[in-house]
Nucleic acid binder design. Sequence first.
DNA 1: GGCAACCTACCTTCTAGTAGGATGATCGTC
DNA 2: GACGATCATCCTACTAGAAGGTAGGTTGCC
Lengths: 195, 195
Amino acid sequence: MTKLTNTSDQILHCARSLIIAGGYNGFSYADIAEVVGIRKASIHHHFPSKVDLVRTLLVTYREEAEAGIAELQRHHPAPVDQLRAYTGYWAACIGDPTNAFCVCALLATQIPVLPPEIVSEVRAHFRTLSTWLTAVLEHGARQGSLALSGTTQSEAEGFMAAVHGAMLSARAYGDADVFRVITEPLIDRLVAVHP
Amino acid sequence: MTKLTNTSDQILHCARSLIIAGGYNGFSYADIAEVVGIRKASIHHHFPSKVDLVRTLLVTYREEAEAGIAELQRHHPAPVDQLRAYTGYWAACIGDPTNAFCVCALLATQIPVLPPEIVSEVRAHFRTLSTWLTAVLEHGARQGSLALSGTTQSEAEGFMAAVHGAMLSARAYGDADVFRVITEPLIDRLVAVHP
DNA sequence: GGCAACCTACCTTCTAGTAGGATGATCGTC
DNA sequence: GACGATCATCCTACTAGAAGGTAGGTTGCC
């Protein structure tokens, strides 16, 4: 239970929102300073460079994501419910502008201009997510609750890509509902047709 | 047949590549000046402001996209083939770093920090694409060559989102093959199972 | 005393954008 | 065909502000 008044946490939280809005080059130390109510130089005390700040932010984000997945798996034993919980989590986020995109997905779009330390964290998140989804689909297929068309890996990559694309469309249209419209059929299709 | 040595075309072409790499805030007039072999001030002669430059670039991009779709429809009468031609076009682009992403899809990720004139162009492109895909799916469903699960609109949005997500994954993994792995099953699934 | 947290003041480099001048092609006019 | 005027294109030189980052000092807690 980290206290919310912790300055470095405030900086990280603020930076995350700003990245979600405009990516790596879309925010500055000055922007954070204004929101947190601190001077630019003080941010450098907590995070010497911008790369340090964003890398720390991503490490935290990945930990939270893994914890979230673990939590989600404890609450939902059935693979279908795990998938629904995952897309449901994001459906809830889309409405909140400061949380309407996966930080790693957004940064991934800018990979060619990102510092290498950031790229490796982003890439690692994609692998984590894809590995987890593969396991969930694999589980569902084994127990017969999910019907896969191609390989488990390709289905997992397709699912992840569709979710990210749904976030993008929701942002493009400025309409949160689009996310649900796209992701719900995604799961319905996987649910095995039982006679 | 516009001549390739046209300076303003060179500027637009260069800016497009730079946006594809890093988005709206990921490039500067200085970057373009260096590539085109011209001074910064000369770019301002052709495009007074950055917004002018990017808006012009998007208008051109959208025209090219619409022309490409028209061409594609002339060459491929069958809806399935139109979808394959569309994903095939992007599959070919993914390999080339300067063309590995849809400009509008990339800019859409940064909508919250984009000038409104840019946002409306990006949004318009999404609507154009979605409208076209809806028509193609509708056509295929009517003639029985495509099997849709939900509404035509939701299938179209899902298809577009999956393609955009596939571009993102290809970039995240740094692996062009991922795009094909994700998009090919997408079309296979739509092809009606004929007994 | 030592140290974390914060400050003011400053640096360099980059940002989009401007002012105004040089060059050269195209133009109607004689 | 020669004439000057106009205009597009490009230049040098500059601006104000924002970028990330640094130096060094003050405060207050353990």
